[in-house]
Amino acid sequence: MDALKSAGRALIRSPSLAKQSWGGGGRHRKLPENWTDTRETLLEGMLFSLKYLGMTLVEQPKGEELSAAAIKRIVATAKASGKKLQKVTLKVSPRGIILTDNLTNQLIENVSIYRISYCTADKMHDKVFAYIAQSQHNQSLECHAFLCTKRKMAQAVTLTVAQAFKVAFEFWQVSKEEKEKRDKASQEGGDVLGARQDCTPPLKSLVATGNLLDLEETAKAPLSTVSANTTNMDEVPRPQALSGSSVVWELDDGLDEAFSRLAQSRTNPQVLDTGLTAQDMHYAQCLSPVDWDKPDSSGTEQDDLFSF
């Protein structure tokens, strides 16, 4: 819950932080000083300027060897085509990944977070970031790969997607708890209302004896509580940590079903599988986004697919 609360507080303090972009060759504004600060901008989305290598189908939802083989196929196909790589912007948030063309600003792909089953910074092609997700059109699994400016960037994108998945799962947990509370309150309110109706004398007997209905007592009954809980029953509950912020979080049926399955089948359902080692994760978390744009010590960066 700490990640969720800190993310909400950060967004309320400075929503404009989320509009910064990394990996864009110096076009961005001043960047936060450390990885923790940038992680807090996830709610509205972190932007990464990358190059799209392509996509291939895979048979399993996750796995280092599986993704490595898929990336190898994608890279080989991209090299064989001889075409310049498409420059894209990857927007990562707890909602998922939005992929747009840098030149036309046209939407290429919009992947809900619950469809993503794996992401990684490839070991062999260490400047490549990739994720595996279920197609929104059918049940097939797709591996999408992107060329980053350097290994640090690939690791940073991988960690960002993993963190977005974690925050999304926490949102789901909060929403589920809130819905259970509202359902319980609604049920209790309905029981109270039913009890009051059972003990209320029939209207005919009131008229016969000349008694008047006590409207004041009726007004004191917990009807307002019942209506408050039943009027918006169809509205999706939102985490309290975000009250007053500009973010509107809505959970669709697909996300609810997917996270429910994860909660039942996995020990740590909030953790998205990645190909990063503990050492890689520690190294990337210690980086400032400013470091992502620094040239690798191995030599001059080449803006070309064939540089790796």
Results as ranks from 00 to 15, higher is better:
V174E: 05
T225W: 04
V248A: 05
G189V: 01
L103M: 09
S245P: 01
G26Q: 14
K179L: 12
L85A: 00
T41Y: 05
D252C: 04
V247S: 09
Q106L: 12
R13F: 15
L242C: 03
K19H: 12
E33C: 10
A263N: 04
T218I: 06
T100C: 07
Q240D: 05
T200P: 13
V128Y: 00
R182W: 09
M124C: 05
V174L: 01
V111Q: 08
D280M: 07
T277W: 01
P295N: 04
G254E: 14
K184C: 08
K62T: 09
A164K: 08
E188K: 03
H144T: 02
P94G: 02
T56V: 07
S140M: 10
Q187F: 01
G54W: 01
Q155E: 14
F171R: 05
L90H: 00
A263R: 06
W249Q: 11
A219L: 02
D183S: 13
R73I: 10
R261H: 07
S224P: 12
D2K: 01
T277E: 10
G194W: 02
Q285D: 04
G24N: 04
F165D: 05
F169R: 02
V161Q: 01
N102R: 01
D303P: 08
H137S: 15
T277H: 10
N110V: 13
P202I: 02
D2N: 03
T120P: 05
K294T: 13
K79M: 04
E65K: 08
D198V: 05
L66V: 12
D122A: 01
Q20A: 13
S140G: 14
Q134T: 11
K62D: 05
S6G: 15
Q270A: 06
S175A: 03
G23V: 14
D191T: 09
Q163K: 13
V290M: 08
S93W: 12
G96Q: 08
K184L: 14
I132C: 01
S243T: 13
F48E: 00
V271W: 03
D183K: 13
M281P: 07
L99W: 11
A121V: 00
M55I: 08
A145V: 00
P289L: 12
A208P: 04
L262G: 03
A284W: 01
S135F: 06
T209Y: 09
G23R: 08
A121T: 10
H125A: 00
K184M: 08
Q285L: 14
Q20F: 12
T104K: 13
A154R: 00
K204D: 05
S243Q: 07
Q302H: 15
E59S: 15
R115M: 04
V290N: 12
P239C: 11
T274R: 02
V92E: 00
Y114D: 02
Q285E: 06
L53A: 00
A78P: 00
K166V: 03
V128T: 01
L193M: 11
L57I: 11
A78K: 00
S298F: 02
K152D: 12
D183A: 12
Q134N: 13
K127V: 00
T77H: 08
H144G: 00
A76T: 08
S175V: 09
L223Q: 11
L11R: 08
S93Q: 14
L107E: 02
G25L: 15
T36H: 11
A258N: 07
D37F: 03
E177L: 14
V290E: 01
S6N: 13
K62L: 02
F171T: 02
A228S: 14
L272C: 07
L17Y: 09
E216K: 15
L212F: 04
E250L: 05
L99K: 07
T274S: 04
V157M: 01
W35K: 14
K152C: 14
A164V: 12
D253M: 04
I71H: 01
G244S: 13
E44F: 12
S117R: 12
H137P: 10
T300C: 10
K72N: 15
S93C: 12
L242Q: 08
T38Y: 03
V88M: 15
K150S: 13
D296P: 11
A18R: 15
G190Y: 02
I71M: 01
Q106K: 11
G194N: 09
R238T: 06
A68K: 01
S224Y: 10
T231L: 06
S297C: 08
E178P: 09
Q86F: 10
A258C: 06
K152V: 14
A195H: 03
Q187Y: 02
S246Y: 13
S265G: 07
Q187A: 04
S224C: 07
A164D: 06
K123F: 05
A80T: 15
V271L: 12
Q20L: 11
L193D: 05
L90D: 00
L11P: 11
K5Y: 12
L4D: 03
